[in-house]
Design a binder for these strands. Structure first.
Lengths: 212, 212
DNA sequence: GTTAAAGTTGACGCAGCGTCATGAATGTCT
DNA sequence: AGACATTCATGACGCTGCGTCAACTTTAAC
């Protein structure tokens, strides 16, 4: 009666704590997907689990917080892919096209997650502003700044460029999910071409920005 | 005891109907701005009015629906401006730059509306998918298709181009609201340059798309 | 002035919210 | 091993918002 298969030496306490938390997150994912974020109640989530209602609040303050946890899980899966693409890139073109391709690829294969993440059957949506997601955006901006410093890219406003890439990525991804005739390949080519062609024409910081 | 100042010959019935509806919408605008969309309840809205709770449901099905009405009011103000800019445009450059400038201009002068529209103090956001807004997007797409037909623009996927413009517009607008050092002028120049430069490089439909 | 239609009102039943006293399970110390 | 302390699950509780509906009031029609 020894040698538990569970990860080494964690006390039973931590054990169930982790498993309860995960149970709630998993239930939440299922319920959000089924009812949509707006229509889901904390009670719906906890009912989809073996736990009692009070227990929910030992782990999360609200359904928003569970949703954030889901977002973070997702971002945690996507970020490394994007990172890898960008590190692998040997020039600016690969940097851009790799990023878009990786993101669109994720979106297409993981439609459900993206759909739940982006919009629900109602009009309710949730801002994608969890720490993990913000960190992902920041990573992109830092890399853009690096590209500028290395002279691979014109010295333009990296904030705006990041915003533009994010905007295009998400909005095009929306079409990618909805339109069946649209391939990842095509979407990525489109976005890449737009930015490669456009970046050269962007206003340089020395010209237009008043300073900070 | 005659000659009411109110618009001609409308019965008293229609009169109060319109005024009640507007009272609810106005109250909603105030309350959303104060509490944020997520935290606001139908009761909060109706309490900010002289009406009884039941009356709310004679005019709207839910707070979502009032919000949509607000969105539509906003879109109704923005659309004509965008339309005007595009009609005035004598070439593709003016088409693009006019659109962005008009939109950013609206956003900057009407920060509150845009902020309430886009995000609330919580993480909650609402999808901007009301009929009026969609119609605005469609208008843009139709104009893009026209530009393609006229040979002013390469024959690329107008859906994706529209998505890209919308994505950039909204995401950059977000920065415009937050960053005080960012001018409408700069943001518009940025977005315009990106698209003018980028569009030329976009994949043509004859090359890449398999068809419909 | 009478009657019909339309619209307003607030009380009602129902459901979800977040809390908290209770008790069970786990860890600790001797 | 047993006794005590700690941590945590539980579900009932009070509260608030939801959407409905029967009763009433106001306007329109004749």
């Amino acid at each position: 009666m020894s040698a538990e298969p569970e990860s080494r030496g964690r006390g039973k306490r931590e054990e169930t704590k982790a498993s309860n938390r995960q149970a709630i997150i998993d239930a939440a994912r299922r319920v959000f997907a089924e009812l949509g974020y707006g229509a889901t109640t904390v009670r719906d989530i906890i009912r989809a689990t073996k736990l009692a209602s009070g227990t929910f609040y030992n782990y999360f303050k609200s359904k928003e917080e569970v949703f954030q946890a889901l977002q973070d899980e997702t971002a945690l899966r996507v970020r490394p892919r994007l990172r890898a693409e960008r590190i692998r890139a040997r020039n600016f073109e690969e940097f851009i096209s790799g990023s878009f391709r990786a993101f669109f690829d994720f979106v297409k294969t993981d439609k459900v997650t993206f759909a739940t993440m982006r919009e629900n059957q109602d009009l309710e949506n949730v801002r994608i502003d969890t720490p993990e997601v913000i960190a992902g955006f920041d990573e992109l901006r830092v890399d853009l700044e690096l590209a500028i410093k290395n002279g691979v890219m014109p010295d333009t406003d990296p904030d705006l460029l990041m915003a533009a890439m994010v905007g295009v990525a998400f909005e095009v991804a929306g079409h990618l999910v909805r339109r069946s005739d649209l391939t990842v390949e095509h979407a990525a080519k489109f976005a890449t071409a737009l930015f490669l062609g456009g970046v050269q024409a962007l206003p340089r910081r020395s010209e237009a920005t008043p300073s900070a």
